[in-house]
Design a protein around this nucleic acid. Sequence first.
DNA 1: AGGACTGTTCCGCG
DNA 2: GCGCGGAACAGTCC
Length: 268
Amino acid sequence: MPELPEVEHMSRLLHGWLVGQRVTAVALPDPALVRHGDVRALEGATVQRCWRRAKLSILETDRTAVVLSYRMTGKVVLSAGPEDHERRVRLRLERADGAAVLFDDTRRLGEAWVLPRAHLQGWLDARGLGPDCWPDPPAPAAFGQRFAGTRAAIKPLLLQPARIAGIGNIGATEALWRARIDPRARAGALEQADWTALRAGVLGWVEDTLAAEDQPEIHWVTQGGPNPFAVYGRAGGPCPRGCGPLVALKQAGRTTTWCPGCQRRGQP
DNA sequence: AGGACTGTTCCGCG
DNA sequence: GCGCGGAACAGTCC
């Protein structure tokens, strides 16, 4: 479910739910969630910061940092009571007022790490993440430079967090369509104008998705709402630019939906 | 029954 | 040695 806009949204929710609040109890119904450290370190502590890096949410108290990775199906929800038996709750942080923040994760691929706060920066550095794609991605030339040194097609490269962090399969699909770039284009075949367009395409996708975040279709797949994307999930349908039918392409095991009519930049 | 799926890491092949 | 694709993780939903 979560791509960068959803992770940004959830990090803001966590901020509102937890900053300034004391965590009165911690429950860990699925201990496999925590890959390092002891999440009970949060008990009795007051949350000072909640923020996002790449697709990670990070909670900080005065001494402890908790990093959450949502992977495919993770999400955080605020529970007002014990009515959540339908969910797959892997972590529960209780507040003094009785409400609780739940980490709900159907497929159980999500992960958490608990670190001394002083180790957080080093831990993040060791992940080797590239610069975030939002809100301040590298300028076009430097953006393109992040994709140097490979002969692979641009689409799978956009999914690599070590190059530019925060772009997932939906984001890559939507950004390439916005930038009119052929998903099969070799990175080395792209020029300055293409990088400018791609960078703008990524920013546009994040900002448009964030702007829609308040509306009920945020979790469109799981909740059955309308598909809010221009091309993702619309293979066989018309290109919004009126070119013709959109086409599904499989690259490195992931589906890309694209328009052969208007995505002609860098075509191989 | 079999395949697809919004993420990420690791393994093995060329 | 390296870059790349594919598998793997785990569960649900067609």
